[in-house]
Amino acid sequence: MSDHQGGGYYLPSPSGWPIVGSTALALFGVGMVLWVNSVAPGGWLVMAGLGVLFYMMFGWFGKVIAESESGKYNAQVDRSFRWGMSWFIFSEVMFFAAFFGALFYARVLSVPWLGEGDTGAILWSGFKSVWPTAGPLGAKMIAPMAEAGAGEFAPMAAWGVPALNTLLLLTSGVTLTIAHWGLKKGNRGQLILWLALTVALGVTFLYFQATEYHEAYTKLGLTLGAGIYGSTFFMLTGFHGFHVTIGTIMLIVILLRCMKGHFKPEQHFAFEAVSWYWHFVDVVWLGLFIFVYWL
């Protein structure tokens, strides 16, 4: 597994970017604490934190790209990046696992428990534990909406926009693979065309997701406050949407790099990393479609 062959592993010189990143997260963290408590400069600090973070990412990734393009990374460095990205994606899988775990726990265990036995009879009499639910007192939390009764919400139906979004993401996985084939064959036209198409599909997905949220909030009575269904629905789809946004930005970055002539048919780790990430986001969506929208 390990073949140094006399070294050649690139070791970067001291760098100021990490401390810039720490400053960014300090601003962001303090800003969020203040903002959620409605204390004055909170929002501004959050914006400043994000600004500094983007500045760091431009600088840091820019340096890595420059090092990569100038041929400083040998095959061993390339393998390090592969391991690093794989474990990063694994950590993301576990992050989503926490929210899927919450969904399954609520649906299979805690919601049924609320309506049965002494708990149901004494504490929440009259509560029917069926999914979807906003909980025993959920009705009081929901403002009346047009397409749902007073104090109720309508769950998001699977076979409208969500099914279309499934199709979009699955297709984007295919177009990305075709772009990858183009890169490996050295066919730049194919690479750029199909990569641009992938970006377009990602953006379209995000547009539909936004319209879905708009409908949920304005017509269905489905909000973050709509009990456990609203909580799990928005946290799962929201974090997924956030990851699609990141993935789309990553796709745009490698699209621009491809247009500048970066990557070689035999060495293009960044491209592969982005495509792994995109496929990961795709698989998470399938889980969402099945367990949040459909079943």
């Binding site: 959920g138 973050l224 609203g230």
Partner: peptide, 16 residues
């Protein structure tokens, strides 16, 4: 943000 993961009134569960 008004979620009910750990609030039984909203269908959640503190034990979760």
């Amino acid at each position: 943000f008004g979620t009910s993961f750990f609030n039984a009134a909203g269908g959640g569960d503190p034990v979760m």
